[in-house]
């Protein structure tokens, strides 16, 4: 992609968090451990930004503190922060997060992906799109779109 066509030429980078240490408890088959925000964050932190060869974590689009997990109600709520308020990629980023989680989490979870309040100019519209099951399903049947999303979430 050419530099002059980028929406945000020089975005700010943030430090990546350390890899999680694998504790003996986690390798123990007899201990049941619930999903926590770090586990969900680990799933989405390495999603690539559609514009730059950088991950969402490096651009601070996703943060661990903005991931909420409610194991009892089977709910995962994620807020993401676009790098600029007029970012046109916001819906695509939101979709990528949703698809990644749909593919990785057990079916019992309801996943909600929303823009961090006050960080995007068409926040309500994007949130509405991302929350609409039908529209998400329709979007995923679009070959071009799912191609781009697959590229974003490929490791």
């Amino acid at each position: 992609m050419c530099a002059d066509r980028l929406e945000n030429v020089n975005p700010k980078l943030f430090q990546k968090c350390f890899e999680r240490d694998i504790t003996p408890e986690e390798e123990d088959d007899n201990i049941v451990d619930e999903f926590d925000s770090r586990e969900i964050f680990d799933l989405i932190r390495s999603i690539n930004d559609p514009e730059h060869p950088l991950t969402l974590e490096e651009l601070n689009v996703v943060e661990q503190k903005l991931v909420e997990v409610n194991n009892e109600n089977n709910e995962v709520r994620i807020h993401f922060t676009p790098t600029i308020p007029h970012c046109s990629m916001a819906t695509l980023i939101g979709l990528s997060i949703r698809v990644k989680l749909l593919r990785s989490l057990p079916a019992r979870f309801k996943v909600l992906v929303e823009i961090t309040p006050g960080t995007h100019q068409s926040e309500a519209a994007v949130n509405k799109q991302l929350a609409d099951k039908e529209r998400v399903a329709a979007a995923l049947e679009n070959k071009n779109l799912i191609g781009v999303i697959n590229q974003c979430i490929s490791v």
Partner: peptide, 12 residues
Amino acid sequence: GLLSDTRLSLYS
């Protein structure tokens, strides 16, 4: 000009 903030992606 790119050296103004170490967090910018073009700094490195």
